[in-house]
Design a binder for these strands. Sequence first.
DNA 1: GAATAAATTGCAATCGATTGCAATAAGCTG
DNA 2: CAGCTTATTGCAATCGATTGCAATTTATTC
Lengths: 340, 340
Amino acid sequence: MKQTRSMTLADIARLAGVSESTASRALRDNPVINQQTRERVQQIARQHQFKVNATARSLRTQKSHTIAVIILFDAKTQQAITDPFLLDILGVIADELTRQGYDMLLSTSKTTDKDWRSYYFDSKRADGLIVIGQGEHDERVDQLSQAGVPFVVWGAATGSEKFPVIGSDNRAGGRLAVSHLLVHGCKRIAFLGDIRHTEIEMRYLGYLDALEQAGITTDPALQLNTDFTAQAGYLQTQQALLPQLPVLDGIFAASDAIAMGAMKALLEQGVKVPQQVAIVGFDDIAMSAYCTPSLTTVKQDTHRGGKLLVSSLLQKLNGQGAVSRLLPVKLIERQSSKRK
Amino acid sequence: MKQTRSMTLADIARLAGVSESTASRALRDNPVINQQTRERVQQIARQHQFKVNATARSLRTQKSHTIAVIILFDAKTQQAITDPFLLDILGVIADELTRQGYDMLLSTSKTTDKDWRSYYFDSKRADGLIVIGQGEHDERVDQLSQAGVPFVVWGAATGSEKFPVIGSDNRAGGRLAVSHLLVHGCKRIAFLGDIRHTEIEMRYLGYLDALEQAGITTDPALQLNTDFTAQAGYLQTQQALLPQLPVLDGIFAASDAIAMGAMKALLEQGVKVPQQVAIVGFDDIAMSAYCTPSLTTVKQDTHRGGKLLVSSLLQKLNGQGAVSRLLPVKLIERQSSKRK
DNA sequence: GAATAAATTGCAATCGATTGCAATAAGCTG
DNA sequence: CAGCTTATTGCAATCGATTGCAATTTATTC
C-alpha cells in the first residue's frame, strides 16, 4: 500500500493536464491562473496527498522558512536544558513560530560549541536565529551581528548592542524583590546567583540598588556565586549561608530553582521560612506556587517575551529594523516572604 | 563588510582551479581525489568560510538529515509544553541527535493539529519522526505506521503496535510505588492521573496489581482523573481527597507535578506528610528532591530512553528493524513516604 | 471585422550540490 | 615500447519547485 516514490509537482501537472508552472501557480492560488484550473489542480493534489517538497522550494526561493533557536549554556554546567523557565519560553516561541508559518530548529549545548553562524545561517538551514541567554557575555553573539545574520536575543540589554535584545527588566525585578524583603523587615539579605550572566548581574544590581536606598551596607559574604540549579542553591546555602544564620534573615535568589534549593537547605535545618529567613525567587515557574511554603517571586512575562522575540525577528527578516525591549516584571507575593 | 551573496561550491571550484565535481568530492574527503587537491580545496573553502548549502544537498541526496520531534498534547489542556519531564527527555534527544549529525525540528501543539505525516515527511522536511506521548491513543500514530514513515514513539507499548515504542515499564513502576506505600503502612491509597493516556493507564494497572496482591479492595472514589499539572493535582486533592481524610493515608500520583500539587493541598490544611498521608510521584524531575518534604518517586531513565529513541530511529532509517523496549524504573525513596 | 488589450498558459532557466560515466594522464609489465 | 592498469578529473544529468518572459487564446473597442 505504501507509495514507493512520493508524488512530485510534475506528476500532479500531468494528471491535471497542465504544465508544471501552471500547477505550481495553481497550488499557491496565484490569481493569474484561471479559477477553475486552480481548483482542479488543487483537488487533484489533495486526492493524491501531494505536498510540495520543502527542500526544493527552499532551494529555489532561497528561504528556508525555518528559525534556529539556540539555547546557550554555561561552559561549566554543560548539562542539557534544565531550567524550567527555558521550557516555558521555548513553548511560547514554538507556538508563535508555528502560527507564523515557520519551522523551529532547536539547538542545545553540543552544537553550540561550534560556530552557529556558519552551521545554521551560512549553510542556509535557517533564515534567522533566536538566541536564548547571552550567558557570560558570549562573544559569538557579537560575531553574529557583524556577519549580518538576522537574529534576536533573549537576555539583558546593556544598551550598546547592535542587535535587538528582548528581556525582562531584571534590575527593576531585583529592586522589587529586595525592597519587598526590606518592607517585610529583613535586614541582612543574601544574594544567590552567577553574576557572570548579564541577566543575573542586572538582578544583582537591583539588589544593590534596593539595599543602598535603604541605607544598608552590603556584605560580600552574603553575595554568593551560584549556578542555575536547585542543587547549587541547596549546596551554597548549606555551606555558606547556614553559618551566617543568626543574622541572615532574607534571601534573594536569581531563579526559582535556586530559591527552592536554598529553601530546602534551610527547612532541613529547622530554620523557619519565612519567619526566620524570608525568600524571594525569580521567574515564577509553575512549581513556585506549589512548593511549601509557596515561593514569592518576580514573574517574567514569558508569553509576551516569546511573542516579541518572534515578531522582532520576522521584522528583521523583512528588512525592517527591530528594537530592543525591556519587559516589565511583577512581584508575586506568596508565603515564603509573608511574615506576620 | 558583510558579504552580499554567500559563496557557492562553484566559487570555491573556480578559486581552486578545479571542476565543481572535484571540489565537491574534495570537500567530502573522497579518497578518489588526489590528496593534495583535497587539501587545497579544503583550505580555500575554510579561508572563505564556505559552508555547503544544506538545502541543495538535501534536494540532491534526498536526505534532510533532520528529525522532527513531535510533542503531543491533551486536546483539552491544549497548553504549551509544561511538564518538566518533557524538557528532560527533550534535552537528551537533542544532544543525541546532534551527536549523530542530525538536526532537530521541534513541533508542539498547534502544528500537531494538522497532519504531521504530510507536513514533515511527505514534504521532506524530516527523514523521520520521534513522537512523544501517545496521549489518548492517538489514531494519527497508527496512520503514520501505515504510511510507511520511519518513526518511533515514547510511550507505552501495548505489544500490538507495528512501530517501535520506547518507554518505561510503567506498570512495574505503579506496582513499585504502591507496594512501597503499602509497606509503609498505608491502607487506603488514592490514584491521581488521567488513564486515557496509555502510559498513565499502565501506572494505574500497576496500582491495581499492588492493591490486589495485598488483598485490598479498590475504592472508585479514590481513583481520580487528573491532568498533568500541579494545579490539577492541587484542585483534585482539595475537592475530592480532603473529604476522605480520616481514612485516606496514601497517594500515588501519576507524575511528580501532580504529586506536588496534591502535597500542597494537604499541607495547606495542616495534614502531615508523610505521617497522615504518604505520597509517591512518578518521573523524578529535578524539583522532586528539593521540595519539602522531598518527594518519593519512581524514576524514569530519561537518559537511556532518549538515546534509545534516537538509535532506534536511525536504525529504521538504515532499513533495519527496530524493536520496542520497556525500560526498568527505580523507586527513589525520599521524605514524602518515610514514616517512622 | 481588424486591432488592441486582457486573461491564461507554457517554455526554459535557475537555485546549489552530488554522482554515474567517460576521458585523460600516469604508472607498470613483459 | 605497445598494451593494460590505475589514479585523477571533468562533463552533464539530476533532485523538485519557482518564475521571468514569451506565446496563445479570448475579450473588448472602434
